[in-house]
Amino acid sequence: MPTYNKLVRDKIPEIINNSGKQFDTHIADNSEALKLLEAKLDEEILEFHQDKNLEELADIMEVIFSLAKSLGFSEDELLNKGLSKKEERGGFDKNIVLEKVYE
């Protein structure tokens, strides 16, 4: 019987239950949830490095939204901050590599 002790998406218990399997879960408090979300982000980033697909990017985005929420920010606040940073400093569309800055 595998032991996971990791954060899963909200519908995973229902999916496991529908498959006829038994399982144990608990609801993490805010402190535990933040640590688990950080670990989940690392996991999803590793999966993206392996597969480089839209599904893995969506998983990363969902974890980031959950991290923002656990820190007291809404998805809209996070997206708006991203847009304001992009307006102020630009995005990463031009693939510019900074090599040196001469003083």
Score class of each variant (00 low, 15 high):
54 L>D: 14
64 I>L: 15
26 H>T: 05
79 L>T: 11
81 K>I: 01
23 F>P: 02
8 V>D: 04
15 I>G: 05
78 L>C: 09
54 L>F: 13
3 T>F: 09
59 D>W: 09
34 L>P: 01
100 K>I: 04
20 G>N: 05
47 E>M: 06
60 I>H: 04
22 Q>L: 10
35 K>C: 12
67 L>R: 01
18 N>P: 03
50 Q>S: 12
61 M>F: 13
56 E>P: 04
20 G>S: 07
93 D>V: 06
34 L>T: 06
41 L>N: 09
49 H>F: 12
47 E>R: 05
39 A>R: 13
5 N>E: 14
28 A>G: 06
46 L>A: 13
10 D>Y: 07
23 F>D: 02
99 E>L: 15
81 K>F: 02
79 L>I: 14
88 E>T: 06
14 E>M: 07
23 F>G: 03
72 G>M: 15
17 N>M: 08
12 I>K: 06
88 E>M: 11
50 Q>A: 15
43 E>N: 09
14 E>K: 05
52 K>N: 11
52 K>T: 08
15 I>C: 05
86 K>L: 00
38 E>K: 12
46 L>P: 02
78 L>V: 11
69 K>F: 12
77 E>S: 05
44 E>V: 07
69 K>L: 13
62 E>D: 11
4 Y>W: 11
80 N>C: 01
7 L>G: 13
82 G>D: 00
54 L>G: 04
87 E>L: 02
84 S>P: 01
33 A>G: 02
66 S>A: 15
62 E>C: 04
21 K>T: 06
75 E>I: 12
41 L>A: 06
102 Y>K: 13
98 L>I: 05
4 Y>G: 09
83 L>M: 07
1 M>G: 13
24 D>F: 09
100 K>P: 03
3 T>D: 06
52 K>H: 15
29 D>L: 08
91 G>P: 00
45 I>D: 10
88 E>D: 08
27 I>F: 09
80 N>I: 00
90 G>M: 02
64 I>V: 10
57 L>V: 13
22 Q>R: 14
8 V>H: 09
3 T>R: 08
56 E>M: 12
49 H>I: 09
24 D>M: 10
27 I>T: 07
70 S>L: 12
55 E>H: 10
91 G>S: 01
95 N>G: 07
45 I>T: 10
26 H>V: 03
72 G>Y: 11
88 E>K: 14
70 S>V: 05
3 T>K: 09
80 N>A: 02
23 F>E: 04
55 E>S: 13
42 D>G: 04
48 F>G: 02
17 N>W: 08
95 N>F: 13
25 T>V: 13
98 L>W: 04
92 F>M: 08
41 L>R: 11
82 G>S: 01
79 L>G: 03
55 E>I: 09
93 D>I: 03
103 E>K: 14
65 F>K: 14
86 K>W: 00
59 D>A: 08
53 N>V: 05
41 L>E: 12
57 L>T: 03
15 I>P: 01
95 N>V: 08
95 N>P: 01
49 H>A: 07
45 I>S: 07
90 G>H: 01
91 G>H: 00
24 D>C: 10
37 L>T: 01
73 F>L: 14
24 D>H: 11
24 D>Y: 08
48 F>E: 06
18 N>L: 09
19 S>K: 15
35 K>Y: 13
67 L>I: 14
86 K>M: 00
14 E>R: 03
30 N>A: 12
53 N>F: 10
74 S>F: 03
30 N>H: 09
59 D>T: 05
66 S>R: 06
7 L>N: 10
